[in-house]
């Protein structure tokens, strides 16, 4: 891999990792972690269509993700099914269709990403899309949190909970679509969930939690990209492994701080 491709890969890692981590802090708190993971697989058929008909796979992936989000949102409103159940159904269908129609030669790249194929255009799109996603999330962040704490409380404060939720899920779909090139459809969901889960273990404030999620996301993505050069394997699995190591560290810190607190309480 040449220096330019590596630089582009790192830039994409910085933006996708931190944005996915920031978005994930909301998803993990909403106990929707599995939704983030399953949602990412829905991109596969769209990606395949992009490869087959020679258009930007990001557009194909985003179209499928956005359609899934809107269908899920509508079914959740109009039926008694949970988001997990609805996405669970759509996810297996999308994964099956995706595996059937993706050309065999491109399947591995679609599933696990290929950092060496990131272009300058991909990088520019990723940076702009990430900045847009961060700006919109910042705008709706408080409303999302209040809706998460209590729907009634949110509605009484004139927050349109359903619309805010739809916007949020569309933002997740957007960042998943841009993250596919680096991490692949199978693992991009982990970039949303793992950093946030690690941050939740060691955070006591909301601001600290969202910041740590973004930092852990950035660290996982960038380290994964750099490591992939040395071990010559796709960056996707490495990004997830680094994220999981951070998560394990956070579990250890959490358990250590609990032990210290208990010791202090018993000696006081």
């Amino acid at each position: 891999m040449d220096t330019i491709t590596l630089t582009l890969g790192i830039i994409v890692g910085v933006f996708v990792g931190s944005t996915a981590g920031y978005l994930g802090s909301i998803m993990v708190s909403r106990r929707m972690a599995l939704v983030g993971d399953a949602l990412s697989h829905v991109a596969l058929p769209g990606l395949a269509l992009g490869i087959l008909f020679n258009f930007n796979p990001f557009i194909g992936a985003f179209s499928f993700l956005a359609t899934t989000v809107i269908v899920t949102w509508y079914l959740q409103k109009s039926t008694t099914l949970s988001v997990e159940a609805i996405i669970g159904v759509i996810f297996v269908l999308a994964l099956s269709i995706g595996i059937l129609i993706t050309p065999k030669v491109d399947l591995l790249e679609a599933l696990f990403g290929d950092i060496s194929k990131i272009t300058l255009m991909d990088t520019v799109i990723t940076v702009l899309v990430s900045l847009f996603v961060i700006l919109v999330v910042k705008k709706i962040y408080e409303k999302l949190i209040i809706g998460m704490i209590s729907k009634e409380l949110a509605v009484a404060n004139r927050i349109k909970v359903e619309s805010i939720n739809l916007i949020y899920l569309l933002l997740v779909a957007t960042i998943v679509a841009v993250g596919i090139k680096e991490v692949g459809t199978l693992l991009v969901g982990a970039l949303v969930i793992v950093p946030a889960a690690a941050a939740k273990n060691i955070s006591s404030t909301l601001s600290g939690y969202s910041l740590m999620s973004a930092i852990f996301g950035l660290m996982s993505a960038v380290s994964g990209v750099i490591l992939s050069i040395y071990v010559n394997v796709p960056a996707g699995p490495l990004v997830v492994i680094v994220g999981t190591v951070i998560f394990a560290g956070s579990v250890a810190i959490n358990s250590f701080s609990k032990r210290v607190k208990t010791k202090r309480a018993s000696t006081a």
Binding site: I145, T205, L206
Partner: peptide
């Protein structure tokens, strides 16, 4: 009551 109080929020 609140739906979610496991959020790390002061």
């Amino acid at each position: 009551s609140l739906v979610s109080t496991d959020l790390p929020i002061l």
